[in-house]
Amino acid sequence: MRSLRLAALILLAAAQQASASGRLVARPVRLARRTASHAAQHMVMLPAGRYRPLYAPPGAERVAVAAFALDREPVTAGAFLAFVERHPEWRRDRVRRVFADARYLADWPAATDAGALGAQRRPVTQVSWFAARAYCASLGKRLPTVDEWEYAAAASERATDATADAAFRSRLLALYAGLGRQTAAAAFVNVYGVRAMHGVVWEWTLDFNSVVLDDDSRATGSGADARDRHLYCASAALGATDPSDYPAFLRHAVRAGLGARSSTSTVGFRCAADMVIS
């Protein structure tokens, strides 16, 4: 049943993608095979579309996002524990320091103990970008790009893009100010079926800081400039597509503050997957 439903979703997404790109014929779309069964359970298909990034490339206020699949919820501590057990090189007592700082999983009672069941159901935090990336790869997935993440996060329960809605913004600010006070289970599910994009944990993205893809972010020399170009003082408002989109600024600042080894109590992640057109 599940896989039938997944197939239907995929076709739907394909149709939407085709119409978005102006093609008339829907092409079959599928996820990489080893992701498929996992995806049916844990992932949601998002159709191709456009969204308005905080800092848009010159000449285009909205950028295109291809169809992709995204985890319904942030990865839980329990799921991450299973990963660590399968891949002991990611245990906190074995991880290489270049891949995670000293606070990596430091809140766990032990290297292979993520705490009581309640704690295991919560989103995992204190994981580095490297570890998050490895987790996703172990399931044939990857981290979502900033564009994908923001595209999914722009949705409210009813609208695919609620970012210009003052009430939605205000709600996000309140959620962020109380980050972690609400559980993922209590967080709202958006119109795509994605839960807890706001106010539970901040989330890693593949290209959270453009430096990271060039070097492993241990270097701060030339990268530091690009990284905080927009980050301090009123100059942050220069070039922003909407200087009143405070929630977007907050997310931007969070990403900019992170290095790829950073393991903090407020940052978790979820995975994404390509939709492969065959």
Binding site: Y232, C233, V254, L258, S262, S265, T266
Partner: peptide
Amino acid sequence: PGGGAKSSLTIPGG
């Protein structure tokens, strides 16, 4: 630069 701001963006716990 930035009155120090440029050198001091600090994540929780940092």
